[in-house]
């Protein structure tokens, strides 16, 4: 079966998580819930990127033991998406911390986390 290999399952899960996170951002009213939805979207996009770089029946891109130096290009998966996701995860935690601190400042000022209470940016 084509659709039951690892990369299809993970891409499918990534898409579903992305849709759920998007729905959460749009429909939730609590600011912290919106930030949680953002972090779900983060995880899903990392999942999709890594699984696009996966190649069937190949090992991790570390040249050691079973992977020989000469035919490394025939035995390893794609290292570029993995390096990309590596930096993206670290940036993601920074962005999450920044959003949380802004939410905290808003709560200190207005004592409310509901996004409907903030009228000053509405037009």
């Amino acid at each position: 079966m084509k659709y039951f290999s690892v990369e299809y399952i993970s891409i499918f899960a990534g898409f579903i998580l992305l849709l759920i996170g998007l729905w959460g951002i749009i429909s939730q009213k609590n600011i912290l819930k919106i930030i949680i939805s953002f972090s779900i979207i983060d995880t899903s996009i990392h999942l999709i990127l890594v699984s696009v770089g996966y190649i069937k029946n190949r090992t991790a891109p570390i040249i050691d033991g079973p992977v020989t130096r000469a035919d490394a290009a025939q035995q390893v998966t794609d290292p570029v998406p993995q390096a990309l996701v590596l930096t993206a995860i670290v940036i993601g935690v920074g962005i999450t911390a920044l959003m949380l601190s802004y939410a905290l400042k808003l709560y200190e000022k207005n004592k409310s986390l509901e996004i409907d209470k903030y009228k000053s940016l509405k037009w």
């Binding site: 890594v50 991790a60 891109p61 570390i62 998966t77 590596l86």
Partner: peptide, 8 residues
Amino acid sequence: IFLAAPDV
């Protein structure tokens, strides 16, 4: 881990 990406 299943996707052969131990670093990530």
